[in-house]
Structures are given as structure tokens and as C-alpha cells.
């Protein structure tokens, strides 16, 4: 009998303790329950749920909360695009805002053999690390380093490295802009998905210098600027910049470009 009690009493005591704690937590769960705004959940459902952080918030749930509080726009999610923005606006009872779907675009055409290198880099496979070591292995101070920091951070697996520079798979890219924030060279830019002509160089070096190290670098000759009939191309700091809101996609600038780095997008 004593043996029996010796086993039974701890079992009973622990069962009592467990039940007590269980009741305490169950009651606490009821008493301390918080009413959350139902709209937060609904908005979160409309968001893609990839938690890419492209909007600047910690994740989709955080953005949903910010939208409901009125801190963020209904169109803050570039990944969800106009479709998500429309649904969210409906939930929030607001007019849908016009959004332009964006796309990451690599503003460099300095592939292997086209852009000269100044040393052989064999350090960590990270662009930011290479950038600190003499601004990367390319002679060009602005070109894509091609070690794939953007590839590692892309939440949609849309990026890859081809021939030594980053390549965007436009069917997968959702325009969240995460790669833009991680590129130490600022060589990736967001452009409107429907933009017909895109620039492939950001080098601000003078024409002579660019010629010396890259076959696909902008030399700032202004031929494109003169060729453009609507004034969409401007050469600023020795590099052509396209104003996508003005560009009509005639492609005349690309035809005239002696370096062939103004790219006409054929499949839209």
C-alpha cells in the first residue's frame, strides 16, 4: 500500500498542478483576449504572403496592419500589383489607386569579356564584400559585380547570374525591389513593366575612360538625346537616362546608339 501511494501521490499532485495551470491559462486566454480589427486579416489574405519586405514593413502581416491603421497606402504592395491594391481598397472602402507594375532591370551590360577586370577576385561570394575590396574586380566603378548578392536575396527566384552579370527573369520578377536595396552598385533599378526602351549602363565616367574598359558602356555622346523626338532621353553626368513617362517606344535612340546599349523590349 505504501508503495502504491508513493507512485500515486506524485501523479495526483502533478495532475492537479497541470490542471490548475491549464485552467489558469484558459481563463487568462478569455479574460485577456484582444479584439483585433477583422480587416487586418482580410487585407493580409489579399497580400501575396511572400514576406519579401519590399514594401518596407517586416512582412505581409505587418503591412496589413499598417494599411488598416492608415499608415500605408492600399497600393503599398508592389508584388500584389493593381489586383491586390483593388481588393484591399474594397475592404478599406477606398477608391483604388492607379499603380504601375514595376520590374527589376539590370542597368549594366558588362558581361564577361566585354567589361575589363582589374584583378582576380577570390574572396567571399558576396557583392558587398567585393565592393569594399577596391570597389569590385571590374575596372568600371559602376558595373555589376556579378557575385549574386541580389540572387541570394530575391524572394521570387527571379534573378540569376548569366555571363558574369545579373539577369532578371521577367516572368518571375514581381517588382518588390528587394534586390535594389541589396545591390551595392545600385545597378538594379525598378522600371515600369511596360517600358519599351531600357538603358543598360549607369557609368558616369567620361567617354574616353569608358571606352578603355568596357565595350558596352555609355560614353555620353548624346546621339540618343538628339535622335529622340519626344525628349525622353537625356544625358546626365555622362550617361543617358530614359524618362519612362515620356518614352513612346519608337526605338530611334536604340537604332542610333553607337554602343548598342539602349535595349528595345520586343516582347511586352
Amino acid at each position: 500500500m505504501d508503495r502504491f501511494l508513493e507512485i500515486l501521490s506524485p501523479a495526483l499532485v502533478f495532475a492537479a498542478l497541470g490542471i490548475l495551470m491549464g485552467i489558469l491559462l484558459a481563463v487568462a486566454g478569455r479574460v485577456f483576449s484582444i479584439k483585433k480589427d477583422e480587416r487586418i486579416e482580410k487585407v493580409a489574405e489579399c497580400l501575396p504572403g511572400a514576406n519579401c519586405g519590399g514594401c518596407g514593413y517586416a512582412g505581409c502581416a505587418a503591412l496589413a496592419e499598417a494599411i488598416v491603421k492608415g499608415e500605408a497606402k492600399t497600393s503599398a504592395c508592389s508584388v500584389g500589383g493593381p489586383e491586390a491594391a483593388g481588393k484591399i481598397a474594397e475592404i478599406m472602402g477606398l477608391e483604388a489607386e492607379e499603380t504601375v507594375p514595376m520590374l527589376a532591370h539590370v542597368t549594366c551590360a558588362g558581361k564577361c569579356g566585354i567589361s575589363k577586370k582589374k584583378f582576380i577576385y577570390s574572396g567571399a561570394a558576396d557583392c558587398a564584400a567585393a565592393e569594399r575590396l577596391g570597389r569590385g574586380d571590374k575596372v568600371c566603378p559602376d558595373g555589376c559585380i556579378g557575385l549574386g548578392t541580389c540572387v541570394a536575396h530575391c524572394p521570387f527566384e527571379a534573378l540569376s547570374i548569366r555571363d558574369g552579370i545579373a539577369y532578371v527573369d521577367e516572368t518571375k520578377c514581381r517588382g518588390c525591389g528587394v534586390c535594389v536595396t541589396f545591390c551595392p552598385k545600385n545597378v538594379i533599378k525598378l522600371v515600369p513593366k511596360t517600358s519599351p526602351v531600357r538603358m543598360r549602363c549607369v557609368s558616369t565616367d567620361g567617354g574616353k575612360a569608358v571606352r578603355s574598359y568596357c565595350e558596352a558602356g555609355c560614353i555620353g555622346c548624346k546621339i540618343c538625346e538628339k535622335a529622340c523626338e519626344v525628349g525622353a532621353v537625356k544625358v546626365v553626368n555622362n550617361v543617358a537616362v530614359i524618362d519612362h513617362s515620356k518614352c513612346v517606344g519608337c526605338g530611334k535612340c536604340a537604332e542610333k546608339c553607337p554602343r548598342g546599349i539602349l535595349e528595345v523590349v520586343t516582347e511586352l
Partner: peptide, 12 residues
């Protein structure tokens, strides 16, 4: 259990 309880209490 205590930590759970404190968490709920603080949240409210």
C-alpha cells in the same frame, strides 16, 4: 505557464 500568462497579461 507563468511566462504564457505574463505574455497574455502584457498584451492586454
Amino acid at each position: 505557464s507563468l511566462v504564457q500568462f505574463i505574455e497574455m497579461f502584457l498584451q492586454k
